[in-house]
């Protein structure tokens, strides 16, 4: 459907990639850990290595949680737009097929939040 309008109604989206100074947005959520109230939005250059995000950025985002130190990344399950997905830690975001405003989540089997409450 289109907006009902008195004349042509077309405007550029406010969040197109060229407005982010060489970065693209990536949204990252940790399943079953709602102590963090919502997934995070983060700006990264497309050439950044995926593994550098996991080792260099995620600790600052999720490290407060006691489960974080117990994560075995080899066992983590990944999802992109809700569908199972396998990242290559050695490759860049772009090489992993991650574009502007993609959303990924990870599940850490066996770790279910504070007192198993998904917190």
């Amino acid at each position: 459907m289109a907006v009902a309008a008195i004349t042509q109604y077309e405007f550029a989206p406010l969040d197109s990639v060229e407005k982010f100074h060489g970065n693209q947005l990536l949204y990252i959520g940790w399943e079953d850990h709602l102590l963090f109230c919502a997934p995070f939005a983060l700006p990264f250059p497309p050439a950044m290595r995926f593994g550098d995000i996991v080792t260099g950025v995620l600790p600052g985002c999720f490290g407060y949680h006691p489960d974080f130190a117990r994560i075995d990344w080899a066992k983590a399950e990944w999802f992109k737009s809700g569908k199972p997905w396998q990242p290559d830690f050695g490759k860049s975001l772009a090489e992993n097929g991650l574009g502007h405003k993609d959303v990924i989540r990870f599940r850490t089997p066996g770790l279910n939040g504070i007192a198993g409450s998904s917190s």
Binding site: Y9, F11, L14, D15, L25
Partner: peptide, 19 residues
Amino acid sequence: EHEPEKYVQSWLPVHQIYQ
């Protein structure tokens, strides 16, 4: 989905900070 032309203009504070 009914009026995408309107909501692509949303001034989302988080994205605005990153811009």
